[in-house]
């Protein structure tokens, strides 16, 4: 997982005549000439310069490309970009407010939950999704929630600690 940006394996046949638009982090972005079979992950990274969603397995196994489609956590490698034209797409880039990290992002740093960092954008979006839906998850609920996000560095201990830290902080703030 040390390679920060594996060469995309996605083939790129001739562009289709149809141009389309995507709404990403509240902004409308034109996708002028793409092959219509491209995944949302590919379009974000290779056509729109948004590399936050990471490209590892391209088959829904690793969770490193997780983002929100109409508020639902999904693997962007399994979304046809040209079918997301009327959806609200929110990526990891849209979470922080400038340099102001979210509580989840800060907790991952504080807990030492980041090693190579490749899986982290997917885990950050996943943990936000979990804690927004389930503010006080059990350990089993946390493990189930991140079961589709592979991390090959940390052994998950400090990731679980970071989730627990955010849960406690949010509870104390209520």
């Amino acid at each position: 997982m040390s390679d920060p940006d594996p060469t995309p394996t996605e083939p790129t046949p001739a562009p289709d005549p149809e141009a389309y638009e995507l709404t990403i982090n509240g902004r409308t972005r034109a996708v002028p000439s793409a092959w219509l079979g491209e995944s949302l992950l590919y379009v974000l990274r290779e056509r729109l310069g948004l590399p936050g969603a990471k490209n590892a397995c391209e088959q829904g196994e690793c969770g490193s490309c997780s983002l929100y489609l109409d508020g639902l956590l999904v693997n962007s490698c399994c979304v046809l970009a040209a079918d997301a034209t009327d959806a609200r797409i929110d990526t990891v880039e849209g979470l922080a407010d400038g340099d102001q990290l979210t509580d989840v992002q800060q907790a991952f740093l504080d807990a030492g939950a980041v090693q190579c960092g490749f899986c982290i954008p997917g885990l950050i979006t996943t943990v936000h999704d979990l804690l927004d839906r389930t503010p006080t998850p059990s350990q089993l609920e946390v493990r189930e929630a991140i079961s589709g996000n592979l991390c090959r560095c940390t052994g998950y201990g400090r990731i679980l600690q970071a989730v627990e830290d955010v849960r406690a902080q949010r509870e104390a703030a209520r």
Binding site: S39, Y42, N75, C77, C78, V79
Partner: peptide
């Protein structure tokens, strides 16, 4: 194309 979790993998991997 329904959820895409089968179709997109097949399309991406040609």
């Amino acid at each position: 194309l329904a959820g895409g979790t089968d179709a997109m993998v097949e399309i991406t991997f040609d």
